[in-house]
Structures are given as structure tokens and as C-alpha cells.
Design a protein around this nucleic acid. Structure first.
Lengths: 191, 191, 191, 191
DNA sequence: CATGAATGAGGTTTCATTCAT
DNA sequence: CATGAATGAAACCTCATTCAT
């Protein structure tokens, strides 16, 4: 009768948030192979509680990714609003760093065992739309070459996340960022 | 290299090679989650035979990576010998493509659940030495900026593999290669 | 009958009746394996409410069976009153049909995972008493052989329910009924 | 290459037989709800061993039913060969008794949570063919009325099994058998 | 009293690894 | 040496029942 999800009871909401938080941390740290039982244990709830909120492991994963993605997109908008020319770079490097400590997000982006486009088409569209927006701004500002598109940016993002994950050391990544800037900069000469 | 105390009997050697080949293909195609039994079945041997040659699944994985790495390094040398200026680029893009169809190699490089440096220090050294070599040649030839080092190249390689894996479509990757060339090219202007 | 110490409050009584009705339909349609949560959902109440009225799943089952049995017995009396000679046959075939759409009742009769005599001795006695009555009437009317007793009739009833359940098709059962009549008819010859 | 199931190794065959035997007894005694772990424990093997021989619980169940059915059919033939007129009755009552101590077989026949026709069409065909055969013989011998067919017999069989299961007491069933004979006998009068 | 969230034991199934044949 | 059967520890998920809200 009242099919629309009523606001959760206070305690349930608390548990749901706690599970989400713990799951995020656990997946981020140890990858998607962590047992649900382990997440339940760390969250201090029974396994059944996890399954009440997220009927499958996959759905828990999705919820986390959707959550993260949304946050990331909001940050991207803020960065681009603050400095249209630098916005795209800031976004790229921010996301790369996120990926470094967030295996789940990385896997979602890279499509390793999780197809973002299929699982969360809404989130994917929102994400790509935002990328297109701040890319256009940067191109108008003259800081990014006009012949790259949003898909190229996503590809680079996947690459950057992998690099960041590979180099836990963010010291080293600061050496790499200028290379990426060079790759995207408006320029005449080519290697 | 020095871990086979006695030359294997002919049939044992044949089995070992066959398992290695099949395991490579299977891991590459279906990821590291494939059961050992499945590999044994495809290789036409018993599971016990796999374990005789490779005491753990991990060790089989290592052997595969070592094997691939060795082949890749040899190809890198050949490419660099043929054209010192282009050698590094050719190597980079070759490896990226390899990674696209070879989950095992990608994971080994990216250190996802497998630490190349720890597991196969010998192979890692050989690989890094070769990278350093052909990088130096390219820098002398003036096709690569002088302020990048071998570690940077490895980082880019990891990124490129991730991109390639993400974009099964190699059409798209041809759009990305010029960006990477731009990143590494000797240049004045920046961002 | 005598186990409700105080009359229930109106809303509680309504809930109880509703749960009973829904549980009957659900068990009948999908078997005893249906989760209590599902029944609660269909009844539009919380699981806790079900447990308030029926302390275990088993007890809910018992209540349903008692309910059905009571109805069936009343119908049996009516049939026998209308036509003493045919009453028993009508009752038999009625119950068989009931069983076809009512897994719970069938199981209760057949004693599959549920012992009617132990769980509901009262209801069992009432049922058997009624069977004895209408059997006696039929025997006096000369339509049923004198050497069968109420226990035999119950046995046949269990068999008929099983047959009916097996043949969802009631077309087919109409072929079988004459056989059962032949089995019970007063007769001279025997196979 | 050699896809045809090679003869099992001696120890494997022993285990398989043992699991089958134990599973048969356990299902017969306690129904299909018994956990596989319990069967494994009783058979003195690991759960994995059960799953090696029977990849799902369902398949174990099928194997048992197929086994029983085959034995039953062979016995039916023997009985009919010994006495064509009595063969069908002997078969009916034999199967009824089997069903009394064999919940699995009963359920398979009655189609309760197991569709014989779908799961084991071969076995079903063999069974029905045999029923048709010995029914025809009995009808020719004049001991069974000519207007019943094999499907009717199967229906009665299901009913008889249910009755037998209901009356653990075979004493009582001896009262019921004459009724069934009367039902099937060639006769003039009817109810 | 009603709700529905939480519990946690238990079910089926998989798979790396060992070991009898 | 090769085989492949056996092991048994998890993994995911369900559901009867309890209890905080």
C-alpha cells in the first residue's frame, strides 16, 4: 500500500549508516573479496542486519559506489566553480587520490568485476555530465586542448587511479602530475 | 632461473610447459579467480600434477608473470635496437596492449594482490634495468624529456594498462596515445 | 476452544482473523515453507503481531488446521443430513478436493511433519466422531458395506487427498471416484 | 577427450555407493529437508565428497529416486511374470509398502517438491510402460476391469502410498487392500 | 499492543590443498 | 610421477524468533 520507502526508524538508520561506513572502509582497504560476515562483525551487527539493508553483496557495493560518486561529483563542481581553468586538473588529481585509498571506487571506474554503467546508469550519467561540463569550461579557459572529449578524460582518470594505487607514495605522484598536464595542455609541438 | 635442481624428465617438462601455457591463457581470459581444477582440466592433467610443479596457486601465478615479463623485456630490447628514439614509445604501447588481454600481467604490475618486487625481485630488476636502458636511449635521441626516470615510466605503464583494460576498444586508445606522447615529449610550454 | 482467557480487543481480534485467513491462503498455495515475514507482509501487519497471536509458526499452522477441520465437519453434517445414503461419499470427495488446494490440510491429515492427533486431540476427536456418525448412517442406508470402520474411511481420505493433489486435473479424478464407490459399495463378488 | 564417464576408482565407487545408501536411508526416514552436511557426517565423508558425486542436493535426490524406481520396476516384472492375474495387485501393494518407509520415493511419485516427469523422464517412461504392460496382462486374465488405464493405476498408487505412510501400521493396511481389490475388480453392481 | 529491525544458527555450495591409488 | 578423490574451512544467504521503539 505504502510502497514508497518510509523514512527509516532511527535505530535502523543508524545501523544502515554504520554498515555503509564500515563497508566502505573495509572494501577500500581490502578489496571486494572481504566476506559480508566480516563487515557485519566490524560494524557490530549480525549478518542478517547487513542483508536487511542490502539484499546482496553487490547491492552493498553499489550503494557505496553511488555514495562516493555523488560526493566526488559535488566536489568537482565546487572546484570548477572556484577556478574554471584549473577545475578539471584539480578534479582529475582529486579523483586519482581517492582511488588510491578506495579500491571499490577504482574497481567501479575501471569496470573490474563491476559495471558502473549497467549497475548505476543514473550515477554514471551524472558523473559523465559533470566531467563534460568542467572540461568545456577548461577548454574555453584555454587550459585544455580542444581535441579531447569527456570519454578521454574518463580514460585518463582510470589510468591515474591505477597509477596512484600502484604508488601508495603520493610523493611520487607529484612527479607524474606535470606529465599529465603536459598531455592535456594546448600546444604546438608533439614528441 | 636457478631453482630447478635437476633437469626435469621429458614428460614432466612437457606437462609443466603445458600447465603454464594453459594457466596463462585462462588467467588472462577469466581472471585470477579461476579454480585450479579448471586449469588442470583444460591442460589435460590432474590437479595433483599442477601442484607438483607449482606448490601453490600463487606460485603458478608468479611463474606465469615471470615468463611473460621475460618475453616482454626481450621484445623491448629488440624494439629499442631497431629505433632508439621510438623504442620507449613502442614498448609502452606494446605493454599496454598486452595488459589489455592479460589480467594476470596487469595485476602483477599494478600490485593488486600481488607484489612483483617482493615475489620476483630478479624479474623486477631485469625489467627495470631494461626500462632504464631504453629510456636513456630515447632521451639521448631527444624524443623523451630528460626529467623523467624509469620509475615514472613504470608508473605510466601501470596507468596505460589500466586504461587499455578499461577500454577494450583499442580504437579509443589510439586517441589516447598522442596524449601520452605529449606528456613525455621534450617541450617548452606547460599547462 | 477454551484457550482465550479474555475476549480480545476488537482490533486485535481483527488482526488475528486476518493473519489466519492470509496464512491459510498462503500455506495452501505455496506450502509450509513460506516465511512468516511473508505472511505478515501479505496480512499487512508486522511479524511481531503474528507472533503475538501465534507463539510459533507451528502454532499458527495448528490454528489453521483446527479452523479448517471445524468447517469441514460442519459441512459433513449438513451433507449427511441432506442425504444419509450419499453423505459419506459427498464428504469424502469434498475433502479430497479441499486437500487438492490446501497443502496444509493435506499434510495435517497425512501426518507429514504434523501429528494431528497429538497436536489437536480435540479437533481430531470431533472429526472422527463425525465420520463415524455419517458412516453409520450410510451403512444403515445400505450404500456402504458394513465391514469398514471410521479409521478405514480416514485412511481412504488421506489417499484420496494425495491422489487429488497429484492430479491437479479434477477431470481425471472423476474417473477415479467410481472406483472408490466400487471399493466401498455393498457387494458380493470380489476380484 | 574421453568424455564418457570412466569407471570410477575403487575407493570413489565405494564412497559414492555409501553416500547413496546413507542418503537413501536418511531421506526415507526424515524427508528431503535433511542437510547435506548431516548425510555426509553419517556417511563418514566430507561434505565436499558428496558434492563431488552429486553436484547439487537435487541431483542426489534424483539419483536415489532413479535407483529405487529401477529396482521397483524390475520387481514388478518378476511379479507379473510369476502370476499375470495377480501381478498388478502385488505390484500396487509392494509399491505402497515401499512408499511407507521411503519418503523420497513417495514425494517423487506424488510430485511434492520434485517433478519426476521433468527430472527423470527416462525413468518415468520406463515405469509407466511397465505399469501399462502388467495392467494389460491382468485385464486379459480378467482380474482387473477393462475401463481403467495406466494413469488411473498411477493415481491409485500415489493414494496407496499416502495411506501406507499415514498408517505406519501395516496391520491396518491389510484391511484396506480388499477395498482396493473391490475397486478394481470386474463387476456388475456399482455403489 | 503493533511494528519491523536485529539476531545468529544453519543451509547449500565452492575450492585450495593433501594424499591414497 | 600422475591421477583425481577427499577434505574442510569459508562464503553467501535465509528465516524463526526476540526485542527496542
Amino acid at each position: 500500500m505504502t510502497d514508497r520507502p518510509r523514512p527509516l526508524r532511527a535505530d535502523a538508520a543508524r545501523n544502515r549508516a554504520r554498515v555503509l561506513q564500515v563497508a566502505y572502509e573495509t572494501f577500500a582497504a581490502e578489496g571486494a573479496a572481504v566476506p559480508i560476515d566480516e563487515i557485519a562483525r566490524r560494524a557490530g551487527v549480525g549478518a542478517g542486519t547487513v542483508y536487511r539493508h542490502f539484499p546482496t553483496k553487490e547491492s552493498l557495493f553499489q550503494a557505496i559506489v553511488a555514495d562516493r560518486l555523488h560526493q566526488v561529483v559535488e566536489r568537482a563542481r565546487a572546484l570548477a566553480a572556484a577556478d574554471p581553468g584549473e577545475g578539471l586538473y584539480a578534479f582529475l588529481f582529486l579523483l586519482a587520490e581517492q582511488g588510491a585509498t578506495d579500491l571499490g571506487l577504482t574497481e567501479a571506474f575501471a569496470g573490474t568485476g563491476f559495471d558502473l554503467t549497467e549497475a548505476l546508469p543514473e550515477a554514471e550519467r551524472e558523473f559523465m555530465g559533470t566531467v563534460a561540463e568542467i572540461l568545456a569550461q577548461a577548454q574555453q579557459a584555454g587550459t585544455v586542448r580542444p581535441d579531447v572529449d569527456a570519454a578521454d578524460i574518463k580514460t585518463l582518470m582510470v589510468g591515474l587511479q591505477a597509477m596512484h594505487r600502484f604508488r601508495g607514495d603520493s610523493e611520487h605522484m607529484r612527479r607524474v602530475y606535470p606529465l599529465i598536464r603536459a598531455a592535456l595542455a594546448v600546444q604546438k609541438a608533439e614528441g
